[in-house]
Design a protein around this nucleic acid. Structure first.
Length: 922
RNA sequence: GGGUGGUUAGCUCAGUUGGGAGAGCGACGGCCUUACAAGCCGUAGGUCACAGGUUCGACCCCUGUACCACCCACCA
């Protein structure tokens, strides 16, 4: 066994074995447990957020698998319509061509090629994380089977009148040339202007002043609106305005939508280019004049001068022209929300087009109820409010996209534009009785990616076939996801699953936070603070890291800044920490519902933790291999106090880890495990075995008992830790299992530990706590007096009770070794003790004689510090206990506790001040 | 405008039904003590954002304020 922990040498070895032996597939007859992976983009690569999410899922999966549950982790990838199409279009662009030159079919072939090229990347990275999904069931949202599910859902929703086609105002992305849903629009505040224009009345009797942030849309105005109760404009309602630049006459209408107190109280109405105006237009039956093309340049319906102009060029021209005409009243600076496409980043336009919609009202009602009545639970709970508020105000969902990459909509049109929905052209003809003389063409559009991922929980299990897997694993157990896609994905899954399965998709939604950098900044290429999980596992040289972070950067200044910042933060690059350390870091940071700030310092600490476990195991192996470890039932063994103590502590650790896993508090689970392994097992237990194992006179029964406990506790601890740190535990377990006579091929198939309260020896725990207090007391003197650790001390114990005496007598062996003692003497009378440095354990005094090597002044200083603390504590307790209200109102056990504390601190105060007097008297 | 989360040691974070705050890293001092210097032993460090209130007692419950982050919303 290597002296130090080398993660790279064990990780790939074990992963290959697990996978090739089929350990990830569901097995056994236990209750089903199932998690559906949120399918990552097929052509994507793993980022820190994935790493976090997959690590959480894998811990849950491994834990439940080890509990004997019939466990399925369904894996797969998403075709990610817009994102993937954009990537391939960019590739074509660098190759000097574009998708239109290629044509639809060739372009789609090219995307499939790209998927084949890059599609395995993310799944390989998933394996590096130790993820244990059933790879044999891997699915892709555009594979054949899944397409059948998507088609089925579309057709049935259409037949049930929950999908319809309509011409409406949608969010139009003029760069990508597609409609996008409300959710894909991100509105941020930006600085802009508010222009005030003078619109003349048609009869020449005056004018109105309208304010707008979008001058270029004025060419499509079809009314000016005022509030019906606005006295200023009462007389004008019903009159006409002559719209400047166009010469069109448009009416002045009254509508409650207008806020009297904002601006001039007059609003230009452009129904084809603003969502509010659209509603107003419908109410007043106004014409809708579209002035844009798909590119958001001005179209043929505007005066010739402006045709073909980009919207922002036209804006300038129109403002200048109105100014020229004396119609520009004023321009103000104005901050406004600008809607941009989340993918393209360009300003989206409200645009009139034909699109397909899902009618969401009834679907959403059911989806709300399933959370209200507790069928589905969000963890943490506050996300339910977010879910409710969105669901209760949900809009119809625009599901058609003018893209080529995606599920093509199963709808056909005849020459008159009549629409037919079916699985294929042949089926259309059959279903609707259309012969070959009628020409049909399929709808050009594809479905929103989220429409297909909305079927993920049941589509992956074979629906619409009623497969065994579907029956067994649906509804799934828990969905692990980020809050950012609750609306995009979670809500849609709940709606669609309830409708088609008449059951929920999952019982629990575990919502985790976002992974940020150590200062809480979002990780982004432009900030240059991105960490790659694989680099944390394998390590990366500084130069490679700098190159990675700055590659493809266009702005030299930004590039230089990022390079400088990276060199400063990682002067030696990033060390190879291994998967287990990375995973453990994620778990330790995974507290409820808050974003996590990832600090490389933390991962280093957990790499050290892995190393600690490695070395502890090494110690166990050294002391147990080829030795009698008490596994033969015929041979008697005897447990020491330390053995009985660690077994009890193990039960408590098991309970804490399980509690953490059951409540999705992986931070608490990992903390409990860390403390048990490092503090209890390594710092105390292993040290306590040394005086036993090194004692040449030790009885065989005791040696057997200690070795037995060493290996059995280690073996159980490894199983306890396995879901969190799969690789190192497997490596160590393979060796440990033989020593502990434990059967099984792999730790991942072994049973998860179950705490047994009967194994908790409370008396042993109390005795060890006493022992620890005594040792720490002596160490503190040694530390503060600067006494060399190797120097053996003679100590005296005074004024202890019979319990102290018993504990001392029983633990001489442990005490001498761990505190490095020369001699131990019990004194009935404190006066017999030589002048000493003193520590207290309750009433028991521990004296370390000053003689020769202890600094008198230092001891006085130490005592004074201690006395000051005690005095403070004493007066606080006195004050509290002299408060009648406290004594009368507080529960008696609390009062009693405070009284005992006071007695203790008064006694300590007295003892230590006596001690101080003695030293001073010298 | 409405809503959610956060504010605890120098940094990153825990804190279980209210009974005088913990960890890791960092700092300081001492150690090559036969598993481990990726380690061991010890020490220091906090007005729990602020102001009220409830209570015998508040990091914890209530009200308000400030700041940070996020979500939702149609103000031209």
């Amino acid at each position: 066994m290597d002296k130090t922990y080398q993660p790279s040498s064990i990780e790939s070895k074990w992963y290959q074995q697990w996978e090739s032996k089929g350990y990830f597939a569901p097995q056994g007859s236990g209750d089903p447990y199932c998690i559906m992976i949120p399918p990552p983009n097929v052509t994507g690569s793993l980022h820190m957020g994935h790493g976090f999410q997959e690590s959480i899922m894998d811990a849950l999966i491994r834990y439940h698998r080890m509990q004997g549950r019939n466990t399925l982790w369904q894996v797969g990838t998403d075709h990610a319509g817009i994102a993937t199409q954009m990537v391939v279009e960019r590739l074509l662009d660098t190759a000097g061509t574009n998708r239109h030159e290629l044509g639809r079919d060739k372009f789609i072939d090219r995307v499939w090629e790209w998927k084949e090229e890059s599609g395995g990347h993310i799944t390989r990275q998933l394996r590096r994380l130790g993820a244990s999904p059933d790879w044999s069931r891997e699915r892709f949202t555009m594979d054949e089977g899944f397409y059948k599910s998507v088609q089925e859902v579309f057709i049935r929703l259409y037949e049930d009148k929950l999908i319809y086609r309509g011409k409406r105002l949608v969010n139009w992305d003029p760069k990508l040339h597609t409609a996008i849903s409300d959710l894909e629009v991100v509105s941020e505040e930006e600085k802009g202007h508010m222009w005030h224009f003078r619109y003349p009345l048609a009869d020449g009797s005056g004018d109105l002043i309208v304010a707008t942030t979008r001058p270029e849309t004025m060419l499509g105005d079809t009314a000016v609106a005022v509030n019906p109760s606005d006295e200023r404009y009462q007389a004008l309602i019903g009159k006409n305005i002559t719209l400047p630049l166009t010469g069109r006459d448009i009416p002045i209408i009254a509508d409650d939508y207008v806020d009297k107190d904002f601006g001039t109280g007059c609003v230009k109405i452009t129904p084809a280019h603003d969502f509010n105006d659209y509603e107003v237009g419908l109410r007043h039956d106004l014409p809708m004049i579209n002035v844009f093309t798909d590119d958001a340049t001005l179209n043929q319906s505007v005066p010739e001068k402006y045709r073909g102009m980009d919207r922002y060029v036209a804006r300038k021209e129109i403002v200048a022209d109105l100014d020229e005409l004396g119609l520009l009243e004023k321009v103000e600076d104005h901050v406004l929300k600008v809607p941009r496409g989340d993918r393209s980043g360009v300003v989206v336009e409200p645009y009139l087009t034909n699109q397909w919609y899902v009618k969401t009202e009834t679907l959403a009602d059911a989806a709300v109820k399933s959370v209200e009545n507790g069928d589905i639970n969000f963890v943490p709970k506050q996300y339910e409010n977010m879910y409710f508020s969105w669901m209760r105000d949900i809009q119809d969902w625009c599901i058609s996209r003018q893209l080529w990459w995606g599920h093509r909509i199963p709808a056909w049109y005849d020459d008159e534009g009549k629409v037919y929905v079916a699985r294929s052209e042949d089926e259309v003809r059959e279903k609707y009785g259309l012969d070959q003389s009628i020409a049909l063409r399929q709808d050009e559009d594809v479905l929103d990616t989220w429409f297909s991922s909305g079927l993920w929980t049941f589509g992956t299990l074979g629906w619409p076939e009623e497969t065994e897997f579907l029956k067994t694993f649906h509804p799934t157990s828990v969905l692990v996801t980020g809050f950012d896609i609750i609306f995009f994905w979670v809500a849609r899954m709940i709606m669609l699953t309830l409708y088609f399965r008449k059951e929920i998709p999952f019982h629990t939604v575990y919502v985790h936070g976002l992974v940020r950098d150590s200062h809480g900044q979002k990780m982004s290429k432009s900030k240059g603070n991105v960490l790659d999980p694989i680099d944390l596992i394998d390590g990366i040289e500084l130069e490679a890291l700098v190159e990675k972070r700055t590659s493809g950067m266009q702005v030299p200044k930004l590039k230089a800044k990022i390079e400088k910042q990276t060199r400063k933060e990682f002067p030696d690059g990033i060390a190879a920490y291994g998967t287990d350390a990375l995973r453990y870091t994620y778990y330790s940071l995974a507290s409820t519902g808050r974003d996590i700030n990832f600090d490389v310092g933390r991962i280093e600490g957990f790499r050290n933790f892995c190393n600690k476990l490695w070395n502890a195991s090494n110690y166990v192996f050294m002391n147990t291999e080829n030795e009698d470890c008490g596994q033969n039932p015929a041979d008697a063994f005897e447990l020491t106090l330390a053995d009985r103590w660690i077994v009890g502590r193990l039960q408590q650790a098991e309970a804490a880890v399980i509690e953490g896993l059951n409540t999705y508090r992986l931070d608490l689970a990992s903390q409990a495990l860390y403390d048990f392994i490092w503090k209890d097992y390594c710092d105390w237990y292993l040290e306590l075995t040394k005086p036993v194992l090194w004692n040449t006179d030790e009885r065989m029964e005791v040696l057997r008992g200690t070795r037995r406990t060493l290996v059995r506790v280690l073996e159980t601890t490894l199983r306890l830790a396995h879901p969190l740190m799969p690789f190192i535990t497997e490596e160590l377990w393979q060796k440990t299992k033989q020593l502990a006579c434990f059967e099984g091929d792999s730790i991942m198939l072994a049973r998860y530990p179950q705490p047994d309260e009967a194994k908790v020896d409370h008396a042993a725990i109390a005795d060890v706590e006493w022992l620890q207090a005594v040792i720490v007391g002596i160490r503190a003197i040694r530390g503060e007096m600067n006494i060399a650790p190797a120097r053996q001390l003679d100590v005296f114990f005074c004024r202890g009770n019979s319990e102290d005496k018993r504990r001392l007598d029983e633990n001489m062996q442990f005490l001498s070794k761990l505190a490095q003692l020369g001699s131990i003497k019990w004194l009935d009378n404190a006066d017999q003790a030589p002048l000493s440095a003193t520590s207290l354990v309750g009433h028991l005094e521990i004296h370390v004689p000053l003689a020769g090597f202890i600094d008198k002044d230092a001891e006085i200083a130490r005592l004074e510090k201690e006395l000051a603390k005690l005095a403070n504590e004493t007066s606080r307790l006195k004050g509290k206990l002299s408060n009648e209200k406290f004594v009368n109102n507080a529960p008696t056990d609390v009062v009693e506790k405070e009284r005992n504390k006071l007695a203790d601190s008064e006694s300590a105060l007295q003892k230590l001040s006596e001690q101080k007097e003695k030293i001073l008297a010298l």
